[in-house]
Design a protein around this nucleic acid. Structure first.
Length: 977
DNA sequence: GAGCACTGC
């Protein structure tokens, strides 16, 4: 042991750190750097403190080394035979790939071999398992073999349970736990060895870990990594961990198995009446295979793989009808209760036929199986990037999976595996099952990577990179949740979402609930959505279960069912003993284990929220409502709205609009149906929020709620598409309006709502404002420039009228240009203009001055003197009477006060010569005139067509009579035309 | 009128 003493050469001090715990090293190294070695004295406090810490760390290492027990191996295990070789390989290589079938003992023996190689002392040996149950049983076995108690030298950690001590040398955990630890300790400094077991299963967790470890190996030369896998695809792991040209060794450890005879028995097919080839029913194929096996051995236990609960039930029914002698049929699937699952571990006097889903291929090992019947199918989950929904199709299993199933017999003696397909079918299948990373949504992985700053996901060293499409969809989902911004950077809210131990979408609901004041409610619901359904229902108990669960239903939403159930159960949980609680669960068709996990998850979420500074209050009290003559307690409408708004924030892609009696239209024009298990199945609200969308035989919405579509707009600001129609100038308000329609993923959220268009499209509104408001003069502003300009325009218009020349005033386009150049682009309404005018008056009056039009600006041409002569402002008739002449285009707009009422007698006195004043200009084409007091009959003839110009004569000296001859009038009028 | 199996800050 190294002594920490001042006599050690100062330049050798850092060597002492090699004997410290790995997790202490960098901290001590930094502290050492801060010590000024040139002036350091033995009595300095800084030195004493450092020396003390180093000493303590070294002592802990020593203590750990001494705690390593004597290691013994079960020599019957194949891996024990390779012990020496493995110890050497692990010492000499940073990464070792170990391949071996079940029964080789690799899972339990390799951690021991690592101990023997001197590992586990300066840091722990971490060993991951894909499942919690496996983590527990593996740690139990290792602890037992090392002669200690679980939770001492060997500890284990799964969700909700941590049995690891500071002095534990080996820590067995689920891969999810290790992944979670990386968030707090990216260097994994508590470990000197990481063993990834069952790497061939290629779960998303494993693939993610393999990528992280590859990066970590470069930063931690002292870290050992061991990958163990079934003997499939081991080269891929070796390729993945080839660093700087150094390829890790691959060791194969033989399994301890008996030979399995393989028989292909494809289903017979026949032709129906129409000549179509029909494949024989699967249950018949299974029955035939059982018969075949029974002929040779009526006692050996048979394992039959099935795709789901319903097939299991069908097959069980078929077998029951066949009345097989001395036979026990046992169903097995994950949703069964623990006690029912335990049946497979009980030996029976009878022959057992176990009908199982894929659980028996990977998760559970059914003991004593001699025969396997493999129909070659599996229900697999695939996330559809195109439709953004989860699908559960039935597919042919891969060759690797078929071989794994085959291997489930032959563990106790020689066995037979009957495949209900032919060798050709087997050979045509893919070699390996598609790894999960290719089948699942990547939002969660991307979010974690963003949070850990692991760099661009596209360049992350995945063992098999996900497709760009799939990555982009992951980014899209996180953007939908507001966890990433438009530039794909983590938002502050995204940081919070990443900190919660649930799916990003569920985490979003919880974060949103804090804003809506229903955090306590959402934790309960979010937890329920994250665990497996706590209802313990199977086909036979379904009816009774639904009756038992009826009191917890809420016609508004399936989500509130969970809240109601929680209220009921939480009270009981606090007041009943565990055994009574278990009983309560049973009578209410609830799974005790899942109810417990539900509770534990709420606690865990609450802890996580505390860490990000959010406090969870109490659940809101229920209010009493009367339904019919039943008094019910339920969440108030106010809080229900808050709850569902929060849910909606995490499920914006799961909104649907009722289409017809049965179906709904979902996002991106998908057709979906309410699942029959939903309490909204019959009610069918217009707008639906689905907790999850899963495509099986149809696209089903499960866990639904009726929602108000108006909630969506504010939540989905970053997603909704606006469509504006018919922008128009509104004279009264001096603003530009339009009609707005909104869609979310193609669903119509708002139809033709009137809106203020200015802020939405300032450019177009600015144009409309100038065109209609300023150029066409519809503005009601008091701005001086506008009043001035309008007056000037009016004046020139009058001139035009008078001169019968509508081409003096410049075109509207010129006016438009004038205003457009001078009015800032951001002004698109009268209020905005008035504000700007007010401000400019103070700060930049020259801007306003520039807005005053001059005649020069408005006149296309000068009206020359001849024009004025031809269109006089007054005329004199018979050298006696002066009349003012007013010019305007529209007949009907007469200046009544100026028009002289000429008596008919006077008219008759007028001579033709009295009209000499009619200038050529006045007699131009389309020019005519009339005198208002012409007799009606006559007037009819002379009144010009409405668009003809009109000349109104008004008397300047009314006391003198006007003489106009009717005859002359006629001639003038005609010549005028 | 109905869904495989796992996992976690």
């Amino acid at each position: 042991m190294s002594e920490v003493s001042f006599t050690v050469q100062k330049n050798e001090l850092s060597n002492l750190l090699d004997d410290c715990l790995i997790k202490d090293r960098s901290r001590l190294q930094n502290a050492l750097k801060r010590l000024d070695l040139t002036t350091l004295k033995e009595t300095d406090q800084a030195w004493l403190k450092w020396a003390d810490q180093v000493q303590s760390s070294i002592q802990q290492v020593e203590k750990r080394r001494n705690s390593v027990p004597k290691i013994e191996y079960d020599d019957s295990l194949p891996v024990a035979a390779k012990k020496e070789e493995l110890v050497k390989l692990i010492r000499d290589n940073q990464v070792v790939v170990i391949a071996g079938e079940t029964g080789s003992g690799k899972t339990t023996q390799i951690p021991k071999i690592c101990l023997e190689a001197g590992l586990g002392v300066r840091g722990r040996i971490g060993c991951t398992q894909p499942r919690r149950l496996a983590a527990r049983s593996v740690s139990e076995r290792i602890a037992e073999e090392l002669g200690g108690q679980l939770g001492d030298i060997v500890g284990y950690q799964v969700r909700f349970l941590d049995l690891v001590k500071a002095h534990s040398l080996i820590k067995v955990m689920t891969d999810g736990i290790l992944l979670a630890e990386i968030q707090n300790d990216q260097m994994l400094l508590q470990y000197d060895t990481i063993i990834i077991d069952e790497a061939h299963e290629r779960s998303i967790n494993i693939d993610f870990l393999l990528g992280i470890l590859k990066q970590l190996l470069l930063k931690r030369a002292d870290l050992k990594v061991i990958i163990t896998s079934a003997t499939i695809d081991t080269q891929r792991f070796a390729d993945h961990f080839t660093l700087n040209g150094k390829r890790p060794p691959v060791v194969e450890v033989s399994g301890r198995t008996y030979p399995v005879e393989l028989r292909y028995r494809p289903l017979a097919s026949y032709e129906d009446d129409a000549g179509n080839e029909i494949e024989q029913d699967m249950t018949i194929g299974i029955a035939d295979a059982i018969d075949e096996l029974a002929l040779e051995d009526p006692f050996g236990d048979v394992l039959v793989f099935q795709v789901g609960e319903r097939d299991i039930k069908e097959t069980a029914e078929m077998l029951r009808k066949r009345n097989l002698k001395n036979t026990e049929v046992i169903p097995l699937y994950a949703r069964l209760s623990m006690t029912e699952q335990q049946k497979i571990f009980k030996t029976s006097q009878k022959r057992r036929i176990i009908l199982s889903t894929n659980v028996a291929e990977t998760s559970l090992t059914v003991p004593g199986i001699k025969y396997v019947i493999d129909p070659g199918l599996v229900r697999i989950s695939r996330y559809s990037v195109r439709n953004k929904v989860l699908r559960l199709p039935i597919e042919k299993i891969s060759q690797a999976s078929a071989n794994q199933r085959k291997g489930r017999c032959g563990r106790v003696s020689a066995g037979i595996c009957i495949r209900l397909y032919d060798a050709e079918s087997f050979n045509s299948r893919p070699e390996f099952t598609d790894p999960e990373i290719h089948r699942t949504s990547l939002s969660s992985v991307i979010l974690t990577m963003a949070q850990l700053s692991l760099g661009d996901v596209k360049h992350f060293p995945f063992i098999e990179a996900p497709s760009d499409k799939s990555l982009n969809d992951g980014y899209r989902q996180l953007h939908e949740l507001g966890a990433l911004d438009d530039q794909r950077r983590l938002t502050p809210e995204g940081r919070h979402i990443a900190k919660l131990p649930v799916d990003p979408s569920v985490a979003k609901m919880v974060i949103e609930a804090d804003k809506n004041g229903v955090l306590a409610e959402l934790i309960v619901i979010a937890s329920a959505l994250s665990i497996q359904d706590p209802r313990d229902i199977n086909q036979t108990t379904m009816q009774a279960a639904r009756i038992a669960h009826k009191p917890f239903e809420d016609e508004r939403s399936d989500f509130l069912f969970f809240l109601n159930l929680w209220q009921f159960y939480e009270y009981q949980r606090r007041h009943l003993s565990q055994s009574k609680l278990r009983k309560l669960c049973k009578t209410n068709f609830l799974s005790y284990m899942r109810m417990k996990e539900w509770h534990e998850l709420t606690m865990q979420i609450e802890q996580s929220l505390k860490r990000i500074g959010l406090r969870v209050g109490q659940l809101h009290l229920f209010e009493e409502v009367t339904e019919g003559n039943v008094v019910k307690e339920r969440l108030s409408e106010l809080h229900s709205v808050a709850v569902h708004k929060s849910l909606l924030a995490g499920l914006l892609g799961n909104v649907a609009l009722r289409d017809d009696d049965k179906s709904y239209m979902g996002a991106r024009n998908t057709k979906l149906f309410i699942h029959p298990s939903s309490s909204l199945y019959k009610r069918k609200p217009k707008w639906l929020l689905a907790g999850e969308l899963v495509e099986t035989t149809k696209l089903y919405a499960r866990n639904n709620a009726a929602i108000d579509i108006q909630w969506i707009e504010s939540l989905a600001k970053h997603l909704i598409k606006h469509n504006y129609n018919d922008p128009h100038w509104q004279k009264k308000s001096g603003q530009v309006g339009a009609f707005e329609s909104i869609t979310l993923y193609g669903l119509p959220i708002v139809n033709r709502r009137h809106c203020n268009y200015g802020p939405i499209n300032p450019v177009e509104s600015h144009k409309l404002f100038i065109r209609h408001g300023l150029v066409e003069g519809e503005l009601l502003t008091r701005a001086a420039f506008f009043k001035h300009n309008q007056a000037l325009i009016e004046k020139i218009e009058k001139l035009e009228h008078k001169l019968r020349r509508p081409d003096f005033l410049v075109d509207d386009e010129v006016l438009y240009q004038f205003y457009d150049e001078r009015i800032p682009k951001h002004i698109f309404s009268q209020p905005a203009l008035d504000k700007w005018v007010k401000k400019s008056l103070r700060e930049a009056p020259e801007k306003l001055e520039a807005l005053f039009l001059t005649e020069n600006d408005l006149m296309k041409q000068e009206a020359n003197a001849d024009f004025y002569k031809e269109f006089p402002d007054q005329i004199q008739i018979s050298n006696q009477l002066n009349f003012a002449v007013d010019y305007h285009f529209e007949p009907g707009q007469k200046r009544d006060g100026l028009i002289y009422n000429i008596p008919l007698s006077t008219l008759n006195l007028l001579q033709e010569s009295d009209f000499e004043w009619l200038t050529p200009g006045l007699l131009k084409e389309k020019t005519s005139f009339y005198i208002k007091s012409l007799p009606k009959q006559l007037r009819k003839q002379f009144i010009p067509a409405p668009h003809y110009s009109e000349l109104v004569l008004s008397e300047m000296s009314p006391e003198k009579p006007l003489k106009v001859a009717a005859k002359s009038l006629i001639s003038i009028n005609w010549s005028g035309r």
